[in-house]
Write a protein that binds this DNA or RNA. Structure first.
Length: 451
RNA sequence: GGCCUGAUGGCGGAGUGGUUACGCAGAGGACUGCAAAUCCUUGCACCCGAGUUCGAUUCUCGGUCAGGCCUCCA
């Protein structure tokens, strides 16, 4: 079997993935959503990408327990704002959108992660972690806030910005934000802060009431749920700085670790989607919600589209991409359908591509070289082509429509047998009106929904 | 301003120091009552300059252009 190679953000190179010696587990942590609204298609890219990694790890290491955690951030300013506006408890907002998120991601063929920890359920671990940082003077208290002392952590060693390939000096030089007065260093970040009136609050370190900063939750939850070190930590590449940079700093400081790998051994980051070269934004009006997309396109088409570019490259999200993806699946399901009941396995070419840093475009091209009987097996690790071909082509036709179509096709077959071409064409026109495409063959016909 | 990526045929998108993707679209053909689908054949590329090399799309340097991060962000 080809050894797995992954691009590690920490080194900036493709490296061989080595499971921890002496462990029977492989752990994967991916930063999940802040649940205050519907997820957009950009949120879905890491979900689908790391779902492929999850499947691949399970396929490659059947003797190990692959444990995948993807958190839910349910403490956040935007959540507070939404709850306040609706006059409800934050849990009303977060429960609603977490559920919708999970349903929408499932529609994209993403397996449920092993764990889905929520920040509000891990306050105790966060407070303990912050307390330890305070005790070790890695963090300090100022005006009711607890701040991480970045200057002390770095100590001129250059280890603070290593993940982002940026030194503390670079950051100061390039700083565009004004520095809060209570910070010792411009890069210091909040671990704990007071809540505003009307916002939820928790008992924090040293009796400080308030709420956690953003970064601490992932440090606390990943350790609580997976244990350190995490094997692979992933997320969108915008998280490299500051989120993941700060996770490393606080976790390493809390455990007196020099090497960032004491926190996570490999770091992976997916690139962004863009929209005809533009970033998605509310002001441009080009925000694409997964929740709406799955109403229009089969989840598998969306999944294919998301995987049709390499995960680290930008991917231009266009209607054409979706149409191309649908065609690709139509063709492959067609090959599968013609193979009939023959089933064989063999996913070597796909594995070969995926073990090279998740080369999904190459894996897709391998699918086009795969015989129909093996397609289902080959598609499994990619999470595609798992449907019965007939079910794929019938799309969301309901039972009534199916019965009608079958009746028309039977009639049409008789007309064709009788060489009554006018009648046959008339029936085909009826089917076209029903949005059905017929494909004749010597013994009858198969059909599919037009879109 | 600081830091980091990337530049491949009409389009999408892999990859490689010397022969190759793959998909879509195009052209020609086969099949077909007509279609659709399918099958066969086929054209089209590696941003610019210099260097290394017997040889560079692939390595090095410079340039140009594009994108990202530096602030919440997948």
């Amino acid at each position: 079997m080809t050894p797995l190679r992954l691009h590690d953000t920490l080194t900036g190179e493709k490296v061989a993935f080595e499971p921890r010696p002496g462990s029977d587990r492989i752990t994967l942590y991916v930063c999940g959503p802040t649940v205050y609204n519907y997820a957009h298609i950009g949120n879905a890219r890491p979900v689908v990408v790391f779902d492929v990694l999850f499947r691949l790890l399970r396929r490659l290491y059947p003797d190990r327990d692959v444990v995948y955690a993807r958190n839910i951030t349910d403490v956040d300013d935007k959540i507070n704002a939404a709850a306040l506006e609706q006059g409800v408890d934050i849990s009303v907002v977060t429960d609603k959108y977490a559920e919708i998120y999970n349903r929408d991601m499932a529609a994209l063929g993403a397996l449920a992660p092993t764990h889905q920890p929520r920040a509000t359920a891990h306050m105790g671990e966060m407070v303990t972690l912050i307390g330890r940082l305070l005790d070790d003077e890695a963090a300090y208290e100022s005006e009711g806030e607890v701040l991480f002392d970045v200057g002390r952590y770095d100590g001129g060693s250059g280890r603070y910005g290593r993940l982002a390939k940026r030194s503390l000096d670079d950051m100061v030089a390039g700083a565009r934000v004004e520095v809060a007065e209570n910070k010792r260093h411009a890069a210091d970040f909040v671990l704990w802060k007071p809540s505003k009136p009307g916002e939820p609050e928790w008992a924090g370190p040293r009796g400080l009431m308030g709420r956690p900063g953003w970064h601490i939750e992932c440090s606390a939850m990943s350790e609580a749920v997976l244990g350190l070190p995490i094997d692979i930590h992933g997320g969108g590449h915008d998280l490299i700085f500051p989120h993941h940079t700060n996770e490393i700093a606080q976790s390493c400081a809390a455990h007196g670790a020099e090497d960032p790998r004491a926190y996570a051994r490999y770091w992976m980051h997916n690139g962004f989607l863009d929209f005809s070269g533009e970033k998605m934004s509310k002001s441009l009006g080009n925000v694409v919600l997964v929740h709406e997309l799955v109403e229009t396109y089969p989840g598998e088409v969306i999944r294919w589209a998301l995987l049709s570019g390499h995960y680290r490259s930008p991917l231009d999200w266009t209607p054409e991409l979706l149409e191309r993806s649908r065609k690709a699946l139509d063709r492959l399901y067609g090959v599968m359908q013609r193979a009939g009941d023959q089933i064989s396995d063999g996913d070597e070419a796909v594995l070969e591509a995926l073990t090279d840093d998740l080369n999904t475009p190459k894996a897709f091209s391998a699918l086009f070289e795969t015989d129909g009987a093996s397609l289902k097996a080959a598609g499994a690790v990619l999470g595609v082509l798992q449907l019965d071909p007939a079910a794929w082509f019938e799309g969301r036709a309901d039972a009534t429509l199916k019965a009608e179509v079958d009746r028309l096709i039977a009639e049409r077959f008789e007309a064709r047998q009788a060489k009554d071409w006018a009648a046959a064409d008339r029936i085909r026109d009826r089917l076209t009106e029903l949005n059905v495409v017929v494909m004749d063959n010597p013994t009858g016909a198969t059909w599919r929904m037009k879109d």
